[in-house]
């Protein structure tokens, strides 16, 4: 059964200028209950890899540099 890649707009945005993942920070990735934040291999910064978000906000609340913004997923907005 063949598969296709479909794109989706994700609700969580990381400000790459503020994110200090390159200094070893993994806080948002650690706390996310849905495990949808990962390191982006291209930029070395945190990003949302899967569109499976409960918009619960620990990622934003716990980020030491205020780099994370949680938006309401488009389907709910």
């Amino acid at each position: 059964m063949p598969t296709a890649n479909q794109i989706t707009m994700v609700p969580v945005v990381v400000d790459n200028d503020k994110c200090i993942a390159d200094k070893g920070c993994r806080t948002c990735i650690d706390v996310c209950p849905l495990d949808v934040l990962w390191i982006d291999e291209k930029t070395g910064k945190a990003h949302m890899r899967y569109d499976e978000c409960w918009y619960c906000m620990p990622c934003e609340a716990d980020c030491p540099t205020d780099a994370v913004t949680v938006n309401i997923p488009y389907l709910l907005r």
Binding site: D30, V31, C32, P33, C56, P58
Partner: peptide, 12 residues
């Protein structure tokens, strides 16, 4: 399954 620091119904 997640991280006990921020898991479950009372995560926030």
């Amino acid at each position: 399954k997640a991280n006990v620091k921020r898991s479950g119904a009372i995560s926030m």
